[in-house]
Design a protein around this nucleic acid. Sequence first.
DNA 1: GATGAATGAGTTTTCATTCAT
DNA 2: GATGAATGAAAACTCATTCAT
Lengths: 188, 188, 188, 188
Amino acid sequence: MVDRILDAAARLLDVSGYDGVSTHRIAAEAGVSPGSIYQYFPNKDAIVAATVERMIERIAAQLAEAFDTVTGTGGADPVRRIVTAVLDATERNRELVRVLVEQMPRLGGSAEIRTIEQRATDLASGYLAGVTNGIPMRRPAMVWLAVQALEQITIRYVLDEPAIDREEFVAELSRLITTFTTLSVVPR
Amino acid sequence: MVDRILDAAARLLDVSGYDGVSTHRIAAEAGVSPGSIYQYFPNKDAIVAATVERMIERIAAQLAEAFDTVTGTGGADPVRRIVTAVLDATERNRELVRVLVEQMPRLGGSAEIRTIEQRATDLASGYLAGVTNGIPMRRPAMVWLAVQALEQITIRYVLDEPAIDREEFVAELSRLITTFTTLSVVPR
Amino acid sequence: MVDRILDAAARLLDVSGYDGVSTHRIAAEAGVSPGSIYQYFPNKDAIVAATVERMIERIAAQLAEAFDTVTGTGGADPVRRIVTAVLDATERNRELVRVLVEQMPRLGGSAEIRTIEQRATDLASGYLAGVTNGIPMRRPAMVWLAVQALEQITIRYVLDEPAIDREEFVAELSRLITTFTTLSVVPR
Amino acid sequence: MVDRILDAAARLLDVSGYDGVSTHRIAAEAGVSPGSIYQYFPNKDAIVAATVERMIERIAAQLAEAFDTVTGTGGADPVRRIVTAVLDATERNRELVRVLVEQMPRLGGSAEIRTIEQRATDLASGYLAGVTNGIPMRRPAMVWLAVQALEQITIRYVLDEPAIDREEFVAELSRLITTFTTLSVVPR
DNA sequence: GATGAATGAGTTTTCATTCAT
DNA sequence: GATGAATGAAAACTCATTCAT
C-alpha cells in the first residue's frame, strides 16, 4: 500500500511537478481512497518527502555500484570511467533527476541530496589522494569544484540535450576534470 | 501600472517564493485592485513569467556590461576577470538567482534563460577564438562545457555557500577553465 | 451580506445546534457561496461568535428596556414586575435562549453573557440599595444568589416547561426573591 | 469490554469535551480496536449516551446517600445539611457536572437527568411535608422552584467560581430555601 | 479603466463506519 | 468475537478569476 501510494506520487511528480500533486490525485492514481493515505503518512509533505527519498536512494545505489566497479577494477583512464558511470546513472534516471533538480528546493533542504554529494566528494578525495600523493586533503576547494563540475555539467547535458555527441561529451568532461585535478598542468 | 504589478510580484517572489505569490497579495503589494491585474495579464502565470523575464533581463544587462568591460580593456588573466565578473553579478543578484533556479522550471520552458546562455556561449566562443586562432568554432562541445562550468559552479558556490574562501574559489574556477580551454592538451 | 450570513447562522444554530452549523450549510442557507463568507469573517468560530453576540445584544436590549420601564414607573410590587419582565424577555426569545444556554459553553467563555449578568447584578444591587438603605453593598453574595435565582429558574421554567401555571410561577418566584432579599431576616 | 469502552469515553469526555471524543480515540484509550466498539454500540452517540447515563447514575447515588444520611439523622437545621450535601456532591463531581451541563443538551433530551430531578423533587416534597403538615402536596410549584434553586444555583457556584466564601454561600442558599419554603414568613 | 465583492472549484485533512480476515 | 485496514463523505478554508458598478 505504501508502495502504491509512493509509486503514484512519483508518477504525478514526474508528469505534473509538485503542484500537480494533490492528495486526491495521488489517491486516484493509486486506486486508493483519500483517507487511506493518512493511515501511512501524516500529511502531504511526508508523502512527497518519502517519494523523493526513494528516488534518491535508487540513484545513489546505482551510482555506488558503478563507483565500486570503477574503483575495484584497475584499468586505464579511471576518470573517464567515472564520468561514464555518472552519465549512465543520470541518463537512466533522467526523469527522476529532472524532478529532483526542479522540485527539490521546495522541499526545504533535504539532507538526502547532500548525502549523495558527500559520498561523491569523499570518493573523489580518495581517488585524487591516490593519484596525487595526498594533495587533495589540503585542497578541499579543488575537490568541491571537481565534484560540482562532474555533477552539474552531467545533469545539464542530460536534461538540456545540447547538440553534443555522447562520446565527445564524455571525452571533454573527462579532460576537464583530468586537466583540472592533475596539478602538474602547465598553463601555456 | 504594469510596472507596479511586476515590481510587487518580484518582491513577493523574492521574499516568499512561487507559492507565496497570490493574485490578491500581488494586488495588495502593488496597491491595486485584484480585478485590475486582469486588464494587463491574462492570468497569474503570465504575471510570474513577465516578472521572471524582467529579472533575467536585468542580470543579463549587468553581465553584458561586465563582459564589455573585461573584453574592452586588455590586461593580464582575462579568464580570471570574467570569472570575477560572473561571480559579482551572481552574488549581487543572489536572491533573484535563487528564485530563478528554484522556481523557474515550474514556468515550463522559459526561452529567456536560454537567451542568457546563448549570449554567454557566443561571448566565450568569441573570446576563445581570439585566443586560439578560431579553434572554438570547430569545438562547440568544449565551449558548451566551459560555459556550463562557469555558470553552474558559480551558482552553486553562491547558493550553497560551501566553506571556500572567495579568493580561492575564483582562483580555482579560473584555473579549471583555463586548463580546460587552453589547448595545450591535445584534442582527440 | 454580513446580515444574511448571520441570519443564516442563527437559523442553523437554532435548528441544529452548533454541530449542525458548517460553513457550507451557512453559505447554502444564506444563498451565498462558501468563499464569500471569508470576505467578512476570518473563520467559522468568528461567525458563530458574531451570531451569538447579536443574539445576546437583542435580548439585553429587550431586558434593559423592560427594566427601565419597571424602575422608571413607581408602583406596587416592583419585584413582581421585574420577574415579569425577565420572564417576558425569556419567553419571547425562547429559542435564542435555548441556543445560548446549550451551545454557549463551547464558545469558550464569551464575555458577552457575563455582561448581561453584570448589568442584572448592578440593577439588582441598585434596587436593593434603594429598598434597604445600602445594605447590599456589603452583601454581594446575597445579590449574586438573587440574580442567579431570577435568571436560572426563569430559564429552566421557559425551557423545561414544567406543569406550572404562568401566574403561579411569577407569584412564587417573586415571593422567593422578596423573602430572600427582605432583610427582616437577621443577617449573620 | 463495555466497561472498558465506557471508562475510556468518560475519561475523554472529561478531559477534552464532546468534540475531543472520536471513536478512534475511545478505542485507543480503551486498548480496543475501533471495529470492536461496534459490536456493543450501534454508533458513537450511543456510546456517549451510555457514558453520560453512567455518570449521572453515580452522582445520583452519591446524592441519595447524602440525603439518606441527612434525613435519617435528626438534628438542627436540616436545610443547611441538605445544601451542604448537594454542594459536596457537586464539588466532588465538578468535571462530570461541567460535562453534563455543557455537553448534555447535544445528546437530545436525555431522560436521565430528569430522573435525578424527579428524585430530588420527591425528596424535597417528602421533607417539606414533614415540616409543614402536608402543605407541599398542594403546592408543587413551590417545590419545583425550591429544587431548581438548590440545583441551579449550586451548579453555577461550583462552575463559575464567584468570589464568594463557601461558608457564606451555604448560609445564604440555606436561608433562601428556608425563607421561601417556610410559609409563615411575614414580609416586612 | 478601475474596482472589489462574489464566486465555486479545489485544497488538505478528519473520522464514523464497514468488512474481509 | 475481535481486528484494523480501507473507506468516502464532509469539514474548514484558499484563491484565480469574473463582472456589475
